[in-house]
Computed example of a mutant assay.
Amino acid sequence: MTDLELQKLVEGISEASFNRPFKHKATFNPRLRTTGGRYMLQSHNIEMNPKQLEQFGEEEFIKIVKHELCHYHLHIEGRGYQHKDADFKQLLKKVGGSRFCQVVPGMRRRSKTLHIYTCKKCGIQFRRKRQIDLKRFVCGRCRGRLEKIKTISQ
């Protein structure tokens, strides 16, 4: 599906499900990793994750489009467009959109390494996903120097 086909699909769903036109731009954004799509508050455009369409099919993708259109129409009307708002929940249920999208396998980034540090003064251990610059940082408890013990790769 191209961006032009996506634009037509979003406009059609907007007219059919919401009885209102979609007057802005809908595009694919392949950089989206953990979300099915997003509504841009400033420009009112919608970006969709193409991996959702490839992985789960058009039926699930349409539910995600409806979710983003709920944000769009409620925001333009000045009503509660956030996930926590009752207006959003009611409209989403009415049009049959999905509350959450499925996770594309392999898209969530998990840190596979763990860095373990200890304080030379008090002996407390610190576990971190990211490395610490030992010249800049000290122990938060006693201000002692830190030393790296080991790195665990999982």
Results as ranks from 00 to 15, higher is better:
K8A: 14
E11G: 04
E11K: 14
G12K: 09
E15L: 13
R20K: 15
K23D: 15
A26E: 01
F28V: 02
P30L: 12
R31C: 08
R33D: 01
Y39W: 07
Q42F: 12
H44P: 00
I46S: 01
E47A: 09
N49R: 07
K51V: 01
K51A: 08
Q55C: 10
E58K: 13
E59V: 13
I62H: 11
I62N: 14
I64Y: 01
Y72T: 05
Y72P: 02
H73S: 11
L74M: 12
H75L: 05
G78C: 10
G78N: 02
Y81I: 00
Q82F: 08
H83W: 05
F88T: 04
F88D: 08
K93P: 00
K93N: 12
G96Q: 02
G97P: 02
R99K: 14
P105S: 10
G106E: 10
S111E: 13
I116T: 15
I116Q: 13
C122R: 06
Q125N: 13
R127S: 12
Q131C: 05
D133R: 12
K135H: 12
K135Q: 14
R136A: 15
F137R: 13
F137K: 12
V138R: 14
C142Q: 07
R145E: 15
I149R: 07
I152R: 10
I152W: 06
